[in-house]
């Protein structure tokens, strides 16, 4: 955990130097899901760049190389070799590698049963987010408080049109769809405030449909729950 934090902050310094940080940056992760996706991205980016340069160079070379008369058989051999190695082999290898990394990563992000998990209901409306903690009896608007290092399941629903719940630095997004409940597993490792936004166009004020996720150390979170949960209890 601490080790991961150190690694992350080191990486964050490098990223800020190249301009990859920012309130909504996927490349500046603060939780395990977003971090896994970031590493997948950098891997794909590297391989993709090599493939792009390789294919374009090959094309350029094929145009520029000195001409030679190929017999029918020779050109068939050249073709089959290029097609089998480049046309079939290359994508098969790339896809296999991608799936080998991608499937376990995706698997680890799913909301598997977990005793520690905290449940937060988020109900999207034009154009704000109603947040409630069913077990703690807390109601909020446009802000969520979660403890660091603890998995949180966001149960996303919608009142009106389709919205999409997204906190880029913590995890991927999930749509809020009328008539359905979708679950997104979130986890923040570093305490701090993270920007969230609606990612699916939902009408005129879509741009302004933002919210905030505050990740706090676990003991502070406990305090916060006792305070606010109590308050609510007192009201009732």
């Amino acid at each position: 955990m601490v080790n991961r934090l150190r690694k992350l902050s080191l990486f964050a310094i490098v990223l800020s130097l190249v301009g990859c940080n920012g309130r909504y940056s996927i490349l500046d992760p603060a939780g395990p899901h977003a971090e896994a996706i970031m590493w997948i991205w950098w891997g794909m980016f590297t391989v993709g760049t090599i493939v792009l340069i390789g294919v374009c160079s090959l094309w350029w070379y094929a145009i520029r190389k000195s001409h030679k008369n190929y017999t029918e058989n020779e050109s068939k051999r050249v073709t089959n070799r290029l097609v089998v190695i480049g046309g079939i082999g290359l994508p098969v290898v790339c896809i296999t590698a991608l799936l080998a990394f991608g499937i376990p990563a995706g698997h680890s992000m799913l909301p598997w049963p977990n005793e520690k998990v905290i449940i937060v209901n988020v109900h999207a409306r034009q154009w704000f987010w109603e947040v409630s903690y069913p077990n703690q009896g807390i109601q909020l608007t446009d802000e969520i408080f979660i403890p660091a290092g603890v998995p949180v399941d966001i149960h996303v629903t919608s009142e009106d049109v389709i919205h999409s719940f997204w906190v880029p630095r913590l995890s991927g997004k999930i749509d809020a769809i009328p008539g359905r409940t979708n679950i997104l597993r979130l986890q923040g490792d570093k305490p701090g405030s993270y920007g969230g936004q609606c990612a699916e166009y939902c009408g005129l004020a879509h741009t302004k449909m933002k919210f905030e996720v505050n990740v706090m150390p676990e003991n502070e979170y406990e305090n916060w729950v006792t305070q606010h949960g109590m308050k609510k209890g007192a009201r009732e």
């Binding site: 996706i37 991205w41 794909m44 294919v55 374009c56 799936l99 991608g102 991927g172 990612a199």
Partner: peptide, 27 residues
């Protein structure tokens, strides 16, 4: 065509990877 299309094809394969798509979908 070749340069741009291969580039678009590569990002297409990236987007086909579900967890990556969860992040960049609709961006």
């Amino acid at each position: 065509f070749l340069f741009i299309f291969v580039c678009g094809g590569l990002t297409g394969v990236m987007l086909a990877l579900v967890p990556f798509d969860w992040q960049v979908h609709d961006t």
